[in-house]
Nucleic acid binder design. Structure first.
Lengths: 172, 172
DNA sequence: CAAGATTGAGAGGTCAATCTTC
DNA sequence: GAAGATTGACCTCTCAATCTTG
């Protein structure tokens, strides 16, 4: 016969490690799971699509597909399909990259901007209600500082993973 | 013409809110993304499968499919398919629920326990290297306390969502 | 008829292969 | 030949429908 007692846990998590890991997983799954549903019901948009729109709104010149993929932490293949869907709905547009004929730039359209601003109300309200609202500003800052310490750059870096998108090219 | 300036952000996140939300998303995506790859390469197991095994190891009598789904925050449909895969590989077994002939219990097999213990080494090492290791025990506790305050029960509740799994039935 | 579990169809992602341009 | 983008094959999960038992 055999039981879990015969196969002891190798190098188990301490209680503090266990709580910090499980809490992160559960909170993330709960917030994003419900958020997916609300965005789909109220705005007919997925969380992945929302993430693409919110990434592009800060890039008036657009982003190359590969860079957009790196920012969203999905593959070029996956980005190509998300952008396909958004383009069919007129929320983003593909433009040829004038500096490299292999590349395409995804840019937010006027319609995409309006859609983003509508969806953002739902998004922010939900994230606040289920996560941020019960923390003081000081606690939010402490939490962000701990996340940054756990994985340097994860909060402070303008892009993630760091260095995925090069600094703006010097003119000429 | 129109530009983002004409569609101002409605009720935007404060810097503290923004950092706390973005840091959570990025850290989660980075840790779990790489973890998926390592578990697949080294143990031929997905993160969803690992999560099922780690859930069942604490339940010597097994869990009903619906309860297992609630614990893993996926649908009964999804659990049915994951358990199918694990059962074909002999890592879990389905047993008829003696108290309700509609139900089935998923139980961990001896082989599943061995696989879990092997995978756990990879899992814990990765989570420590990319997340827990740069925090002191005190910081890990602070982080867990903040997550718990943000979403009460998310750390402290033995099961999540709370109440998904009923207390053990009284004998008889 | 309600609840537990499963199945078919579809959405959304990955990897490997392909095409075009550097 | 390498890099950027896309497509085909496949995998996993969800939703809606179905089957069985309470």
């Amino acid at each position: 016969m055999s039981s879990p007692a015969d196969h002891p846990e190798p190098d188990p998590f301490s209680p503090a490690e266990f709580d910090a890991w499980r809490g992160l997983l559960r909170l993330h799954a709960t917030v994003t799971g419900e958020l997916q549903g609300k965005l789909a019901d109220e705005h007919a948009i997925s969380l992945a699509e929302y993430a693409v729109l919110i990434t592009l709104v800060t890039e008036p010149d657009g982003l190359r597909m590969t860079d957009l993929a790196a920012r969203r932490l999905i593959t070029p293949s996956g980005i190509s399909r998300v952008v396909d869907k958004l383009e069919r709905r007129g929320l983003v547009a593909r433009q040829e990259d004038p500096s490299d004929r292999r590349g395409f730039l995804s840019v937010l359209t006027e319609k995409g901007l309006r859609k983003l601003r509508e969806a953002q109300v739902t998004h922010h309200a939900h994230v606040r209600e289920t996560y941020l609202e019960r923390l003081t500003e000081r606690e939010q800052k402490t939490l962000a500082r701990l996340l940054e310490k756990a994985m340097p750059g994860v909060v402070s870096s303008a892009v993630w993973p760091p260095g995925a998108v090069p600094a703006p090219r010097a003119p000429g």
